[in-house]
Each structure stands twice: as C-alpha cells, then as structure tokens.
Write a protein that binds this DNA or RNA. Structure first.
Lengths: 231, 231
DNA sequence: CAATTATTTATACGCCCAATGAATTTACTG
DNA sequence: CAGTAAATTCATTGGGCGTATAAATAATTG
C-alpha cells in the first residue's frame, strides 16, 4: 500500500534479539531516536543516516521497518498520539460523568490538560521529546495544521463541547478562537525552547511542570470566560 | 567576519538594473522569496536553488549577496524585525506617556499587539509571511528560543514593565509565565496554519485579523489578571 | 537438524545540495 | 570613450542525501 515495496509491520517477534544485548527492539530504538531528532530539528533537519547512526543500526533497516523517511515520521507521530488521545478522552469523560450538570471551565480544561502534563512531568524523556515535536508541528505552516487535524480533532471537539456546557451563552466563534489561544499557549510550553528561561534570566524554567500547571489552567479559564461571556 | 569570503553589503546602486525590467532589486526579490519559503517549510526545508529559481536569479547571486544560506536566513529575519520592534516600542511609549499612572493590562497589551496586527492586516503578503516565519521559529526547539531572545527581548521587557505598573502586586514569575502564554497564542495565530479553519469547519479563518484582535486582547488580559492577581 | 522466515549488513546508485572562482556583462566615472 | 567597479552568470567541486538490492546472519519451525 505504502510508497516502498516492503515496510514490514513488525511480525510476531522472531529473528535474533539484537547483537549487543540491547534490551529494546531495534524498531523502538529507531523510533526513540527519530522522535528526539525530529522534535529538535524538524522533518527536513534530520537525515535517516543520522537516525541510523544514533540508534546503532544500519541505514537500510529504517527502510526495512518503515519504508521511507516520511513514513518513519508518521510512525513517530502516531505511536504516542493514540495513547494520549485515549487518556484525554477518558479524563474528560470521567469529569463529565462526575459533574454532569455542574461542569466548570476550569474543570474541563484541567481534565483536558491533566494527561499531557502528567506525562510531561513523569513520562521520561521520550514523552518530553514527543510533546516538543507536537509543539513544533502545530506551528508548521505547510502541513502542520493538517497533521494536527488528522490526529487531534476528536479530543478537541470533546473539550469544546464540555466548555460549551459550562458557558451555554458562548458562540461557536468565541469558543474556537479561545481554544486556538489555549492551543498556542500549550504547544509553546510543550516545545521547551528555553525561551522563558532566558527571558526571565533563570527565574522560570520551561520544564517546570508544577509551575506551569496551575497558571496555565487559570490563564486559559479566565480567557475563555472573558471572551465567551463578554464581561 | 562571516563564514564566506564575500557577502557584499549592497553598494551604492551600480551595475545593470536587471535584465528583464524587474522593478525591485534582485536582492530584495531574493529576500521576499526566501521569506515566503522559509516561513512555510523552515530553514532545512528550503534549498537555495529553489529560492534562486523562484526569484529568477542565478544561484551564485545569493552567495554573492548573503554569503551563505544561514546568513540569508538571518537577513530575512532581521529585515522586518527592526521595523516592527521600533513600532512596538513607540506604541508602548506613547501609551505609557498618555496614561502615565492609569495604565491598564488591556491597554498595555493592545499597544504591544497593535503594530503587529496592523501590519498583519494591511502590510501585504510580505509581512504575513514574515509573521508566519516568526511563529515557526518561536516553536523551534533547537535554536528558536535563542533567535527570539536575540531579536525580541527588549520589546517584551517593555511590555512586562508596563503590565507590572497595572498589576503592582504581581510576582515576576507570574508575569513571565503569563507572557509565555500570550506569546504562544500570538505566534500560533501568526503562523496561519489554517488549523482553526479546519477545526471550526470554515466558521473561523486564521487570516481574519478583525476577528482575532479583540478576542486576543480580551483573552490575554483576563489571563494576566487571573494569574497575577490570584482572584 | 534442515527448511524457513525474520532481521541485519554491505554496497551502491542516481540525484541534488551548498559553495566557489573565474569569466562575462552592465553601468557608472572621469 | 576608455577604465573601473558592481552585478550576474557559468561551470564545477566535493559531499551528503534518500532509497534500493542482494547477500549474510540469526532465530523459529517442522
């Protein structure tokens, strides 16, 4: 189906487990390295040779598993998207079920953010790299919007529906624009460019999730209210 | 000083004015095309050949004027940064002078945003491309934070000082985090990924500055207040 | 243990990249 | 109108790119 002739879909765990006692699959090692590189330099700033070397595998192995560089990128993007989307859906469903009629803007946003912030804080470097990649893709003019739409729209519509319950007077336009502002704030925080560290001369740190979390929720909730209630 | 041996700094306008009666300098044409391409595909997603062809110029001419691809990128980034920075500084100075003791969060943010939003709405495609490029760079992990710091820090500190007048109780941390959220919202809007168009199924448009402006100001001001006043 | 299948490596192809330096064309200057 | 300097082109260099193919190696299966 895909571009190249091969691109195997990981058969049932056969073949030798890897020469030098590497604990993970070669396939997973490739994904990890690619994730880290793509998140820092973007799709075009990374070469498949570079990924192969850093993962200690042969270049051809990447094409054996993924078919092409583009398909490798997609595999990186998809791997954790499915996990985090399921977690966010569950968190919002649980919040809605628990509060039914009395949902608040703050509660909805917190449910929407919690899985991401938890993974960001405790998920290890893989998850941090992944979120930085999402932040980068989200701002990429050429194909960023399209990719984000494909992977993340359902979760976002769930959030907007939830907030619409808390703000029944809100217009669709106001809700979408407000979400766009929230999205920008979030993805810049995820990108971890070290910008706030430099700007604040060391007072704040991009990786300080505990400082980020309450401020992000308060800021976004207040913004939604003001835009959507007009007061 | 720079990488290549040459990289001329535009001498006094000599030489032939350009074969096929082109009105602009070749140099400006190169900058315009590079701006557009870099803003869509990032530094590594663009080749100097591609820029040369689109600008109807020989590849070597780019190296004649700019020395290297990296220096071309820097020239693109700097060209409009100086203009917009001066305008923003002037706008905030004027606002501070006019309101002295009675500055508000809304007023400060409006002064900070006004020159950008005006250029975005009425500055033509060059300015739109430029702002999209800023949006992309701002989210680029590898060197984005550093580049933004170098070019835009003074304006931002001016804004934060102004808001600090309106919110004298605010802590530095709260101000910096809030600014970071504002910055994310703004640069995502500038990036014009078409995301909000797709998300809203055509209801909202990324290039609708008149819809963006009042919502952006209201959202950010409310966020600042809530985070910095804690109420 | 032979046959098979999955994994990994070695090697190479064809293409395009950024960058150079010399040659050439154009316009200005005295 | 010759001389000079800027602008532009041409031809080339060396290297890295993504991808393809086939051989070699290792584990599984009958």
């Amino acid at each position: 189906m895909s571009a190249a002739t091969s691109a195997r879909v990981r058969p049932a765990r056969v073949g030798r487990p890897n020469k030098d006692s590497r604990e993970k699959d070669a396939r997973e090692a490739i994904l990890d390295v690619a994730e880290e590189r793509f998140s820092r330099h973007g799709f075009h700033g990374v070469t498949v040779r570079e990924v192969a070397n850093a993962a200690h595998v042969n270049t051809a192995l990447i094409h054996y598993y993924f078919g092409s560089k583009k398909e490798l990128f997609d595999a990186v993007f998809m791997r954790r998207a499915e996990i985090i989307n399921a977690e966010r859906m569950a968190a919002m469903d649980a919040y809605a079920a628990a509060h039914g009629d009395g949902v608040t803007v703050e509660g909805a946003i917190e449910a929407f953010l919690a899985p991401v912030l938890t993974r960001l804080a405790n998920g290890g470097p893989g998850w941090r790299n992944y979120f930085a990649l999402v932040g980068l893709v989200n701002s990429t003019t050429a194909w960023g919007g399209e990719v984000m739409t494909r992977y993340f729209d359902p979760v976002i519509h769930r959030l907007i529906d939830l907030i619409a319950c808390a703000l029944p007077e809100a217009s669709k336009e106001d809700l979408y624009w407000s979400y766009n502002f929230l999205s920008g704030s979030l993805t810049l925080s995820l990108a971890e460019t070290g910008r706030i560290d430099r700007l604040s001369e060391g007072l704040c740190h991009s990786d300080d999730v505990e400082a980020l979390r309450p401020r992000m929720i308060a800021y976004a909730a207040a913004g939604f209210r003001r835009v959507c209630e007009g007061k």
